[in-house]
Amino acid sequence: MEQTTRPFGRGGLTVGPIGYGSAALGNLFAARPDDVWPRIVPAAWQAGIRYFDTAPHYGLGLAEERLGAGLRDLPRDEYVLSTKVGRVLEPNPEYRPGETDIANLFDVPTTRRRRRDYSRDGVLRSVEDSLERLGVDRIDVLFVHDPDEFEREALEGAFPALDELRSQGVIRSYGAGMNQTGMLTRFVRETDLDIVMCANRYTLLDPSAERDLLPAAQERGVSVAVAAVFNSGILATERPRADATFEYGAASPELIARVDRIAEVAERHGVTVPQLAVQFPLRHPAVCTVVLGADTPEQIERNAGLATPAVPEAVWDELAAEGLLG
């Protein structure tokens, strides 16, 4: 897989094959130790990663704050930064000491709370707050975050606001980030967005985006970033563990057996399941980058190397022949 950059949206941005998704900096699932999280962004940079994605949702703003700290001394013109709108953070007057946000998967104190807001005012407020938390003077890409139950509000409020920000040169590109393809496809067709982020729906185990989203993106000249290519864990190791997770729940025995068969094919050709998981989506011409999370500097260093060398075409042929693709 080539390490060359690809156009990202229509605003002149380019990205490499691997980006860093910063949910772990917001203490996703568990708190990151103070001697670990500060080393993650420098490790990503050292490994050649130049695209960084975050969101107010991640750790109630903590991920933005920590990502900003990691980027602070790096040359701003040499990386692409995206965050998201749709969840405005406010002080939580009901906070009680010791309460955490673990119900939303983040191990952080609930001193703030989220308010879903896809209005123009909500977008502008969210952008202003994100700039402050990140400590930067500009954000390159803004995504409307998970508007599953707010499609009308996003179409009438958020997207026109983002279009205005792009036309003013405040941002370079905008789009939407979701765990589904149906609504993303409608947004591609009905708005002038130029980037989408699709999580969990273009992977070795679920390539459903190729039925609707990817053809629409190609037709409309929209760039696609693919996230969650490990399907929350089952594809992250060379062999699936007995307690492997799939989309944040326990993987079924049948799914584990299928990934074992994929691993057998990979091993015959001297490659690994994580390499396949990363390079599968990058083979599609609409896909510009794969966004990977990491809990430690060592993980991001490993992840950054998964796009090269290229998986031999014979591997894909064998997986297809055995009915293991899609």
Rank of each mutant, 00 (worst) to 15 (best):
A24E: 14
A24S: 14
L25D: 03
L25R: 00
L25Q: 00
G26I: 06
G26M: 05
G26F: 03
G26E: 06
N27H: 15
N27Q: 09
L28Y: 15
L28S: 02
F29E: 10
F29A: 07
F29I: 08
A30D: 13
R32G: 12
R32S: 15
P33M: 09
P33F: 08
D34Q: 12
D35A: 14
V36Q: 00
V36P: 01
W37D: 03
P38H: 05
P38R: 04
V41A: 04
V41E: 04
V41R: 00
P42S: 08
P42C: 08
A43H: 11
A44N: 05
W45P: 12
W45K: 07
W45T: 11
W45E: 03
Q46C: 06
Q46H: 08
Q46P: 07
G48M: 14
I49C: 02
R50P: 04
R50N: 02
R50H: 04
R50E: 00
R50T: 15
R50Q: 01
Y51D: 07
F52Q: 05
D53K: 02
A55H: 05
A55F: 02
P56D: 09
P56G: 02
P56Y: 01
H57W: 15
Y58W: 09
Y58V: 13
G59C: 02
L60M: 14
G61E: 12
G61P: 15
G61V: 11
G61R: 02
L62E: 05
A63R: 06
A63H: 14
E64A: 13
E64V: 15
E64S: 09
E64K: 09
E64G: 07
E64L: 12
E65A: 15
E65F: 10
E65N: 03
R66K: 13
R66P: 10
G68L: 04
G68H: 07
A69N: 00
A69D: 08
A69S: 13
G70Q: 00
G70R: 01
G70D: 00
L71Q: 02
D73Y: 02
P75C: 06
P75M: 09
P75F: 13
D77P: 01
D77L: 09
D77S: 15
D77K: 09
E78N: 07
E78Y: 00
V80P: 00
L81Y: 04
L81R: 04
S82P: 11
S82W: 05
T83Y: 02
T83M: 03
T83N: 05
K84S: 08
K84L: 07
K84V: 06
V85T: 09
V85E: 03
V85K: 00
G86T: 10
R87I: 04
R87M: 14
L89W: 06
E90D: 13
P93A: 14
P93T: 11
P93N: 07
P93S: 06
P93I: 10
Y95C: 10
Y95L: 07
R96S: 09
R96V: 14
P97C: 06
G98Y: 12
E99V: 08
E99H: 06
T100G: 11
T100A: 15
D101S: 13
D101R: 00
I102P: 03
I102N: 04
I102M: 10
I102H: 11
A103V: 13
N104M: 09
N104R: 13
N104H: 13
L105K: 12
L105Y: 11
L105N: 07
L105E: 07
F106D: 00
F106K: 00
D107H: 08
D107C: 01
V108P: 11
V108N: 01
P109N: 09
T110K: 14
T110Q: 11
T111C: 02
T111G: 10
